[in-house]
Amino acid sequence: MSEQEWHVASLVVYCRPKQVAAVIATIEAEPGAEVPVSGEQGKLVVALEGAGQRHIVEHIDRIAALAGVVSTTLIYHEFAELVPGEESA
């Protein structure tokens, strides 16, 4: 794995309906993470991006360990080599 990679991933996260707002706030407080779609019944779509696969895996692990999260499922993962001089974010 090159240090010059940029990774993008998306997850479906199921959480307890009463904890949706808290889970979203915690996820979105992390750099490179956002929740573009959420449902009142606890289904979230989470987008992650960062430099390196380890960064993505650590995000997923932190999300899975949040209070109220029932499950996480990786839906999409892609990475690209950065061209010298290209900015990652």
Results as ranks from 00 to 15, higher is better:
Ile56Cys: 05
Ser2Phe: 12
Ser71His: 06
Gly68Trp: 09
Ile75Ala: 14
Glu49Ser: 15
Leu44Phe: 06
Arg54Thr: 14
Val45Arg: 03
Val12Ala: 12
Gly52Ile: 08
Gln4Cys: 01
Ala51Gln: 15
Ile56Gln: 09
Glu78Val: 10
Trp6Gln: 15
Ala89His: 12
Gln19Pro: 01
Ala33Gln: 10
Ala33Lys: 05
Glu40Tyr: 01
Thr72Gln: 06
Val13Asn: 04
Ala64Arg: 13
His7Glu: 07
Ala65Thr: 07
Val57Met: 10
Gln53Pro: 00
Val8Lys: 07
Met1Gly: 15
His77Ile: 11
Ala89Tyr: 12
Gln19Gly: 01
His55Asn: 11
Ile60Cys: 04
Leu48Asp: 08
Ala22Ser: 09
Leu66Tyr: 04
Ala47Asp: 03
Ala51Asp: 02
Gly50Cys: 05
Met1His: 14
Leu82Asn: 03
Thr26Met: 03
Glu87Val: 10
Thr73Pro: 00
Gly42Met: 02
Ala21Lys: 14
Ser38Asp: 04
Leu74Gln: 07
Ala80Tyr: 11
Gly50Pro: 04
Pro84Phe: 01
Leu44Ser: 10
Leu66Trp: 03
Ala47Tyr: 00
Gly68Pro: 07
Gln41Met: 01
Glu78His: 15
Ala67Lys: 07
Val46Phe: 01
Glu34Asn: 10
Val70Gln: 11
Val23Asp: 05
Thr73Arg: 12
Gly42Tyr: 07
Val83Arg: 13
Val20Ile: 09
Ser10Val: 06
Ala65Pro: 02
Ile27Met: 08
Tyr76Glu: 07
Gly52Tyr: 05
Ala33Cys: 15
Gly42Trp: 06
Tyr14Pro: 00
Val35Gly: 02
Ser88Pro: 05
Glu3Gly: 12
Ile63Phe: 10
Phe79Cys: 12
His77Phe: 10
Glu3Phe: 02
Glu78Gln: 15
Ala29Pro: 00
Phe79Glu: 11
Glu78Gly: 02
Ser10Thr: 14
Glu58Met: 06
Ala64Leu: 08
Ala80Trp: 02
Ser10Met: 07
Ile24Ala: 03
Glu5Thr: 14
Ser2Val: 08
Pro31Leu: 14
Val46Asn: 11
